[in-house]
Simulated assay, not measured.
Amino acid sequence: MHKRTTQKMDKAGQMRTDNIYENADAIRGEITMEIEDLNTTRIQPPQQTVSDCVKIRNYRAAVVCLVLLCVLLLTAVIVLCFTFTQEISKNENLTNVRNQLILKNTNLTNERDQLILKNTNLTSERDQLILKNTNLTNERDQLILKSTNLTNERDQLLLKNTNLTNEREQLLLKNTNLTSERDQLILKNTNLTNQRDQLILKSTNLTNDRDQLILRSTNLTNERNQLLPKNTNLTSERDQLILKSTNLTNERNQLKQENNDLQRRLGKVDGWIYHQCSYYYISNETKNWYDNRRYCTERGADLIIINNLEEQEFVRNISGYVDVWIGLTNSNLEGRWKWVDNSTLTSGFWGYGKPYSYYEDCAVSYISWWHAYSCNSALKWICET
Rank of each mutant, 00 (worst) to 15 (best):
residue 158 L to A: 11
residue 82 F to P: 07
residue 144 I to A: 03
residue 245 S to V: 04
residue 239 D to W: 00
residue 332 N to A: 10
residue 165 T to Y: 09
residue 50 V to Y: 15
residue 361 D to W: 04
residue 355 P to D: 02
residue 285 E to W: 06
residue 214 I to A: 06
residue 21 Y to C: 07
residue 24 A to M: 14
residue 367 I to L: 10
residue 95 T to F: 04
residue 337 W to V: 04
residue 81 C to E: 13
residue 351 G to F: 01
residue 233 N to G: 00
residue 175 N to G: 10
residue 122 L to S: 02
residue 280 Y to L: 01
residue 95 T to Y: 07
residue 222 N to I: 04
residue 370 W to M: 00
residue 104 K to V: 03
residue 11 K to S: 03
residue 192 L to R: 06
residue 114 Q to M: 07
residue 27 I to D: 03
residue 340 V to M: 14
residue 132 K to A: 10
residue 327 G to R: 05
residue 351 G to V: 00
residue 331 S to P: 03
residue 116 I to L: 13
residue 176 T to I: 08
residue 158 L to R: 12
residue 285 E to S: 09
residue 309 L to N: 14
residue 379 L to A: 07
residue 2 H to D: 15
residue 101 L to I: 05
residue 182 R to C: 08
residue 14 Q to V: 07
residue 273 I to R: 10
residue 183 D to K: 08
residue 239 D to Q: 01
residue 368 S to E: 05
residue 100 Q to P: 00
residue 358 Y to S: 14
residue 31 I to P: 10
residue 38 L to M: 11
residue 72 L to S: 15
residue 324 V to K: 02
residue 144 I to T: 06
residue 280 Y to P: 00
residue 281 Y to E: 04
residue 26 A to G: 09
residue 334 E to R: 06
residue 85 T to W: 02
residue 84 F to T: 15
residue 20 I to L: 09
residue 155 D to S: 14
residue 38 L to P: 03
residue 278 S to Y: 05
residue 193 T to F: 10
residue 313 E to T: 07
residue 211 D to E: 14
residue 142 Q to I: 09
residue 28 R to N: 05
residue 98 R to E: 05
residue 16 R to Y: 04
residue 342 N to H: 11
residue 293 R to Q: 13
residue 275 H to Q: 11
residue 249 T to S: 13
residue 160 K to P: 00
residue 326 I to P: 03
residue 368 S to L: 08
residue 161 N to Y: 10
residue 223 E to N: 09
residue 168 R to S: 13
residue 15 M to N: 09
residue 255 L to N: 08
residue 76 A to C: 11
residue 125 E to W: 01
residue 181 E to R: 10
residue 360 E to A: 13
residue 246 T to Y: 06
residue 39 N to L: 12
residue 270 D to M: 00
residue 205 N to H: 10
residue 93 N to F: 12
residue 82 F to W: 05
residue 79 V to A: 12
residue 9 M to N: 13
residue 381 W to T: 01
residue 208 N to F: 04
residue 63 V to K: 06
residue 58 N to Q: 07
residue 170 Q to G: 07
residue 165 T to G: 13
residue 206 L to A: 10
residue 149 N to E: 13
residue 8 K to F: 07
residue 136 L to A: 05
residue 85 T to S: 06
residue 31 I to Y: 15
residue 249 T to H: 09
residue 314 F to V: 03
residue 330 N to D: 11
residue 352 Y to L: 12
residue 36 E to W: 01
residue 381 W to F: 14
residue 228 L to E: 11
residue 151 T to V: 08
residue 160 K to Y: 00
residue 248 L to T: 04
residue 291 D to C: 00
residue 7 Q to I: 10
residue 189 N to F: 01
residue 252 R to I: 04
residue 366 Y to K: 02
residue 384 E to W: 06
residue 153 E to V: 10
residue 39 N to W: 05
residue 87 E to G: 06
residue 268 K to V: 14
residue 338 K to G: 08
residue 61 A to C: 12
residue 54 V to A: 13
residue 255 L to T: 03
residue 283 S to Y: 07
residue 171 L to F: 15
residue 380 K to E: 05
residue 9 M to H: 11
residue 103 L to G: 00
residue 198 Q to P: 03
residue 97 V to F: 07
residue 254 Q to H: 04
residue 383 C to S: 00
residue 276 Q to S: 15
